[in-house]
């Protein structure tokens, strides 16, 4: 908002901030278009994911059974927490060997992706705008969203991953025939008339689990981001007038309050996503 006099209107500002940098360069209009890919989401998500595993790998490489340092202690706390949760939910030791690290990755990764919300809203988009226009492009099309979890593609991608893990363990634990049998006979019972109803229920269950899993994280982060934008609009109303000053003060107070509250949401949503992943995989181990 360095250029107030030619600044965008409130709706334009928000729409601009909610538009992804994708492979087409313009806003995606179709609800579903598999030919498009969101470069910003992918970039930040991969960057943060790689950072996550490298940080964890660094801790793992230096891990000793002696007295831990603060960094090692912090990582160990998270690992211990995830390991305990996994142990309580998934009783197969062999499955835990894959699912527990998966839960750890998901927890830390999502935490970092959510935490991108704490960066000043316009900081990275503004820098990107500079880079983009320096390359001779229209600065108004310099879109950039930095919170990957506020993109439904990212969260649904991860929840689909959890679904695949669930299906894998369903087949592994019950055998393919056993799983198919369960699909048609649970939850109402084994009767030819009930087969379609059971199957429909199972499909709905899997779909509901997966979609709500992804939607929950997306909704929280999207709404959080949107509120940061609305708060930012208050500060943008600063124009030397009394109303503007009051709004600017409102920005400071509301921004601080929301950011502090957001610390809770960021870690809570990461934790919820991890826990649900564990619970769903745990359910895959149990017969109906």
């Amino acid at each position: 908002m360095s250029s107030e006099h030619v600044g965008p209107k409130a709706s334009e500002y928000i729409v601009h901030h909610l538009t992804h940098l994708n492979s087409t360069g313009t806003k995606q209009t179709a609800i579903v278009d598999w030919s498009v890919i969101n470069l910003d989401t992918l970039f930040w998500s991969v960057l943060l994911g790689v950072s996550t595993v490298l940080i964890l790998a660094r801790a793992a490489a230096r891990a000793t059974s002696g007295v831990p340092g603060r960094f090692q202690g912090a990582v160990e706390m998270i690992v211990e927490m995830v390991a305990d949760q996994a142990k309580g939910i998934i009783h197969s030791e062999e499955s835990r060997r894959f699912v527990a690290p998966l839960a750890l990755t998901v927890f830390v990764w999502i935490f970092f992706m959510n935490a991108m919300d704490f960066l000043p809203l316009d900081l990275l988009p503004k820098l990107w705008e500079g880079v983009y226009s320096a390359q001779g492009h229209d600065p108004h099309h310099a879109y950039l969203r930095i919170v990957p979890t506020a993109d439904l593609n990212a969260t649904l991608g991860m929840s689909l991953g959890v679904l695949l893990v669930c299906i894998y363990y369903n087949i592994k634990v019950k055998g393919f025939g056993g799983w198919v049998h369960e699909l048609f006979t649970a939850p109402f019972g084994s009767h030819p008339l009930l087969y379609p109803i059971n199957f429909l229920m199972q499909l709905i269950e899997f779909a509901a689990k997966t979609i709500s899993h992804g939607m929950r994280l997306f909704g929280n982060m999207y709404a959080g981001e949107l509120i940061f934008m609305l708060i930012a609009l208050m500060g943008a109303a600063w124009a030397g007038t009394t109303t503007g000053a009051v709004l600017w003060l409102g920005h400071v107070l509301a921004g601080a309050a929301w950011a502090i509250f957001h610390i809770l949401i960021v870690i809570l949503q990461a934790f919820i996503f991890m826990m649900l992943a564990l619970v769903y995989v745990g359910q895959a181990h149990e017969g109906h």
Binding site: Q28, W34, T41, L42, P101, T105, G161
Partner: peptide, 30 residues
């Protein structure tokens, strides 16, 4: 909230990261 190929990319990244953690992070730490 438009769906596109980012979803599949994210799915692949998800498994790569989980595999990396399983292979190189989890065993030494535990």
């Amino acid at each position: 909230m438009n769906l596109n190929a980012t979803l599949w990319a994210q799915l692949v990244v998800f498994f790569i990261l989980a595999w990396f953690t399983m292979k190189f992070v989890w065993p030494p730490l535990t």
